[in-house]
Structures are given as C-alpha cells and as structure tokens.
C-alpha cells in the first residue's frame, strides 16, 4: 500500500514536472515561427511577447532578460518569441508590426484577441510587463480602441443588470453608433476584478455605470447610472476625440 502510494506520488510528480517542462517549452518557442507562435497563443488564450531586434546588443539582452523573467512568472498565460527584423522567415510578422520602422529593440505584447497590449523600446520593466496582461474584457476595450472606435464600457452590478440609459442612447445615436463598441462587464465575473481595479470602480456598486474610452487610450470619464446622453456626447466633443464639426470648436 505504501509502495503503491509512493508509486502514485512519483507518477504524479512526473506528470507535474512533465507538464511544467512542456509548458516551459511552449512559453519559449525557439523552433516555431513568430506567426505560428501567435496563432497558437490565440488558440490557447495566451499573450505573446515579441522581441524585435537588429543587433544582439546589451539593450536587446536586457530586454530579453526582463521579458523572459515575466514570461516565466506567467508561464500559463504567456509566450515569448525573439524576432530579428531582417529574418526573411519572419518577414510576415515583421511587416505586420512594421518592425523595420520602429525603434528596436522593442517588445510588443499581443493579447489572444489580437489587441496589442504594450510596446516598449530600448528598455522595459516588470511593472510595464505586468500591466500588459489584461482581463478578457479589458483586452476587448483595447482592441476597440485600436480599431479606432470609442469604447463604451458598461459596468453592471450583476450579470442581468441593464446598461445605463445614456449608454444605450449613445450607442444608438447617429453621431456615434458606427464609431462605438459596447463592452459589458459584470461585477459578478470574478475574472474581471482586475479590470475594476484598473478603472478604479468599486465592484460592489449597486448601480450600473458607464466608462468612455477614446482612441488611442483616453479616459473620457466614468459616469453613474443617472448620466444623460448630453453629458456623454459633450464629453466626447470636449475632448476633441472625434474630429467632427462640434469637436473642432473645442479642440485647439
């Protein structure tokens, strides 16, 4: 019995170690092309960190070291790929990220939904890398902004709650219906707690709230349930976030 338990423990350990080894291999995909890494990451819901470089100089090595550390820390959620900008085999990804025209070495983080969650060149810190790991809804917000849309984020106290009236009107308005993306985040969704923390909203709030973000990453405001459509549109125009006639008066 003791032997069986010991065998079972050894097998379990082997399984864990094996898994860990497998995970480690997939996090640092030396053999796969950057394109394949990105595709795999998308399927597996992982973040990909691409390090574009020209010379394997000290800066490159420093950035590589920092990023590797971060990827090791989040092996279950991240992957890393180092890409030489003149590597012909990687030209597809180099062109996709226009890497020949960005200052290198540079690290670009790509969320599973395709949103780019960070770009840093010359140096990078663990703090910056941590910031690039987002919740699913947050990644949706970022993707919307990168698609030149205004992100209308409805923070709902429960899964069944309704977005604010003003948010619904905003999304249907002539001015913004085709320029906006609606992202609903429920306070009941535990995985989105980090999102609440980042937008500085108490998840225990009983009323629906709405947050407006404009490209490239402007926080136009967080509004309570009783906000009016006029207030929302006014905020957008006042920020000059859409170059419509109304904005031009406000934007210097």
């Amino acid at each position: 019995m003791k032997t069986l338990k010991c065998t079972q423990f050894c097998l379990a350990m082997l399984f864990v170690l094996g898994n860990a080894a497998l995970n480690t291999t997939s996090a640092f995909s030396a053999d796969l092309s950057a394109r394949q890494v990105l595709e795999n990451a998308s399927e597996e819901g992982k973040y990909t960190y691409l390090l574009f470089y020209r010379n394997n100089d000290q800066r490159t090595r420093m950035m590589e070291s920092e990023t590797s550390q971060h990827v090791k820390n989040h092996a279950d959620r991240t992957q890393f790929k180092k890409v030489h900008v003149y590597d012909r085999g990687e030209s597809d990804v180099v062109n996709q990220f226009d890497a020949k025209r960005i200052p290198v070495p540079a690290v670009i983080a790509v969320a599973p939904n395709g949103a780019i969650t960070c770009i840093h060149n010359r140096s990078i810190s663990q703090q910056q890398l941590e910031r690039s790991l987002l919740t699913t809804k947050y990644a949706e917000v970022v993707l919307a902004l990168q698609n030149d849309k205004i992100a209308v984020v409805s923070l709902l106290p429960t899964d069944d709650s309704k977005p604010t009236k003003a948010a619904r009107q905003f999304l249907k308005s002539d001015d913004f219906s085709d320029r906006s993306v609606h992202i609903q985040v429920s306070a009941e969704d535990e995985s989105e707690r980090d999102f609440y923390a980042r937008v500085k909203v108490d998840p225990e709030t009983e009323q629906s709230q709405v947050i407006l973000f404009a490209p490239p990453g402007r926080h136009l405001g967080t509004f309570d349930n009783d906000v009016t459509l006029e207030t929302l549109t006014e905020k957008v125009h006042a920020s000059g976030s859409c170059n419509c006639e109304k904005c031009k008066h406000n934007h210097n």
Partner: peptide, 30 residues
C-alpha cells in the same frame, strides 16, 4: 494605439495627462 494600455493607465493613475497643457492632451486625435 499600440500604447492604449499604458495611456489608459497613465490617465487613470496619474490623472489627466493633459494637465500639463490646458485643452491639450498631447494625444493624436484618432
């Protein structure tokens, strides 16, 4: 827009980045 996350972070954490310059956030209108 690849910097969206950092920009949002800065705005949420440090207050309006544009406080350095009234009516001007320093962001390209997109």
């Amino acid at each position: 827009s690849w910097q969206s996350v950092d920009l949002m972070f800065q705005e949420m954490e440090a207050g309006a980045l544009g406080s350095q310059h009234e009516n001007c956030t320093g962001r390209t209108c997109q």
